[in-house]
């Protein structure tokens, strides 16, 4: 087992951090820096996310936006700075990492469903093995979320038998079955055929309206306009501009943002 835990007080998995000044911040990122070898991918990022806030992160490819949200559940390790998720600081402590991952759901560009398990088993796995939910209860929850993403009738099929849009909706349901406090979306519609993008976005819009805290890396500007509380524009590993969608699209402050918006809104 990769455990480096201190061994003190086993029930105190998460070392609680005082949240005085910036209360309600469910994610706090301070001076986040990351390098891939010599390459400085993330340069001193700062971000506070309030509970229930919906944030869209956009930017050109290679800007570090995916790496950024992958740091939040420690799929990527950061080298400097601090990330506090739901009162738990992310460090090399496996217990902390796993505690945070229990509360943070993630949806990937390529779905990453488990191909050897049926749709239902995909949704049951983590609740049963991580949350120790009794199987019957887990099935109930899973069917509830599969209904919410509108594919309860596919529950006993294997991922390989579903379309891309259906697979991505299952992936969303799988993440929701852990009843996370935060959902991370890493370009969830980029790998989909155009006619399937809408069905996935519809599910995400519905999820947003339910009060879920969401961080979403996407190029779907329509989604950003209707759903986001804040839009973050990243370029070259930095947060260039943060603004409410109204201001972001009509009145961008930074020349780099303007350039980017011109490029993607042209056609």
């Amino acid at each position: 087992m990769q455990q480096t835990g201190t061994g003190s007080a086993p029930d105190n998995i998460a070392s609680p951090v005082e949240s005085v000044a910036r209360d309600e911040a469910i994610i706090r990122v301070d001076d986040l820096n990351k390098w891939f070898g010599e390459f400085h991918v993330l340069k001193s990022l700062n971000l506070d996310v309030r509970k229930g806030e919906r944030i869209v992160i956009c930017g050109p490819s290679g800007s570090g936006k995916s790496t950024f949200i992958r740091c939040i559940n420690h799929l990527e390790a950061h080298q400097r700075g601090q990330i506090i998720v739901d009162g738990v600081e992310l460090n090399e402590d496996v217990k902390n990492i796993e505690a945070i991952r229990r509360e943070v759901g993630m949806v990937f560009q390529h779905f990453n469903l488990f191909p050897h398990l049926s749709v239902l088993e995909n949704c049951l796995l983590a609740p049963i093995w991580v949350r120790k939910t009794p199987r019957n209860e887990a099935i109930e929850t899973a069917m509830h979320y599969l209904e919410r993403v509108r594919i309860p009738d596919q529950a006993h099929k294997y991922p390989g038998q579903l379309s891309g849009g259906q697979q991505q909706r299952v992936a969303i349901a799988r993440a929701l079955c852990m009843q996370p406090k935060i959902m991370l979306f890493d370009e969830p519609t980029s790998a989909l055929d155009p006619e399937m993008i809408k069905e996935v976005l519809d599910v995400m819009v519905e999820l947003a309206s339910s009060g879920m805290t969401m961080l979403c890396v996407t190029h779907e500007m329509g989604f950003a306009k209707t759903v986001a509380d804040r839009v973050i524009f990243m370029d070259g590993g930095e947060i260039v501009e943060t603004a409410a969608p109204g201001d972001f699209f009509t009145n961008p402050q930074q020349p780099r943002t303007r350039e980017f918006l011109e490029q993607i809104l042209q056609h």
């Binding site: 799929l75 796993e98 759901g105 990453n112 488990f114 050897h116």
Partner: peptide
């Protein structure tokens, strides 16, 4: 086994042995 499978299993909060036993080995052995 694609990296995405390891990542999806990690993102769900599964520990190392469970990731291997439930996700990776069934696919790899197949």
């Amino acid at each position: 086994i694609p990296r995405g499978q390891y990542e999806a299993a990690e993102a769900l909060g599964l520990g190392y042995w469970r990731r291997m036993r439930l996700i990776i080995l069934p696919q790899a052995l197949k």
